[in-house]
Simulated assay, not measured.
Amino acid sequence: MTIKQLSYFLAVVDTGRFTQAAALCRVAQPTLSKQIRTLEEDLGETLLTRGHDNVTPTAAGEALLPLARRIVADSETARMEIAELAGLRRGRLRLGATPSLCVSVVADVLEVFHGRYPGIALQIAEGGSQDLVADLQRGQLDLALVIDRGETVRDLALTPVLREELVVVAARGRPDLGEHIGIVELAAHPLVVNREGYELREVTLAACAAAGVTPRIAVEGGEMDAVLRMVERGLGVAIVPSLVLAGHPTLRATRLDESGEHADRGWSHRTISLAHRTDVAPTRAAQAFREDLLSVLARTSRTGHLPPGVRYVHPPTLTA
C-alpha cells in the first residue's frame, strides 16, 4: 500500500469516474486503474464497484475511506513540515474557528502572525464547533478554536483560552425583553437557531429540555450571519455569543438569568479552547500561531480591549 495508491482511490471515490480521477491526479487512466487494482490485490478485497455510469465504494472501500483520507492528509502535513524547517519562510497553517471568533479574535491574531511569517499560507475553516472537531480528528486542520464542554475528546488536547457570555438578541423596535430573561420565559418567544453542527444549537435546546419547556422554533438551519440577519428582520430571538454583537447596532442584547428554580446553572457562559491532535506533533507553524494567540489575548486582556462579555483564561504552559 502506498500514499499514491490511496490518493488515486480517494480521487475515484470523490469524482465517481476513473477518467475524471485520472485527470485530477494528472496521470493516464490505465496507470491509475492499475495502481488501484494493485491496492485491491494487496488488501485482498474489491474496493470499488465499477458501474456503467459511475464508480462507488464497496463495503471494504467504505471501511478504508476515512483511514485513507487521514493517511493522505497526514502525509501532506509531513511534506509541509519539512518545508517549514527553513525558518518558517514557507509552509501552511490550517485553522478552524467558530464564526463569532473569525470576525473578532482570529482576525487580530492572524494580523500579527502574518506580519511575522508572511510566507505561511493561511487556510481558515469557519463552522460549528462539532464540525471543526471532526475536521481536526480527520487531519484536515492543524488547530481549531472550539467550544470546550469539559469532556474528553478522542485524540485531541484542548487548552482553555477564553470565557465568553451568551446573550439573547432581539431586533430593536420589537417587544423589550428587559435586562434579564430566564429560559422558561425565553421559550415563549419564537426562536431562531443554528443548523446542526453548532454547539450553540445543542446548548439552547438542552437548556430548554432541562427547564422542562418546549421552545417555539421559528427558523432553524442557518449559519451565524444568517441567524443574526433573521433576528434583525424580526423573525424571532436567538441565543448568541456576545462577541457577535459588534457591527449589529439594530440588535438589542438581554442577559440570560440563571437564578430561577428551573435554570440549568452555568450554561450562559462557555469556554473556548485551542484544540490540536495528540497523535501527531503540532507543526512549527501551528506552534508559532499558538504563541501569537496567547500573546495577543494576554495583551488585549491587560489593556481592557477584549469584547464585552469575554475574558481571557490564563492557560498552563502549552506543550506539543
Rank of each mutant, 00 (worst) to 15 (best):
L6D: 07
L6K: 00
T15G: 09
T31L: 04
S33W: 12
L43C: 09
T46Q: 04
T49E: 10
A60F: 01
L65Y: 05
V72I: 03
A73P: 03
D74H: 02
E76T: 01
A83S: 13
G87Q: 14
S100R: 01
L101T: 03
V103Q: 07
V106G: 13
V112P: 04
H114M: 06
H114W: 02
P118A: 02
G119S: 09
E126N: 08
S129Y: 09
I147S: 08
D148A: 14
E151W: 07
P160L: 03
G173I: 12
R174V: 04
H180R: 13
V193P: 01
N194W: 04
A210S: 06
R216W: 00
V219Q: 11
E220I: 03
G222L: 15
M230K: 09
G234V: 10
G236Q: 10
A238N: 12
P241F: 02
L245Q: 10
P249C: 12
R252W: 06
E261P: 03
A263F: 00
A263M: 00
W267F: 08
H269V: 11
R270L: 09
L274Q: 05
L274A: 02
A275I: 11
H276C: 05
R277Q: 14
R277H: 10
T283R: 14
T283Q: 10
V296P: 03
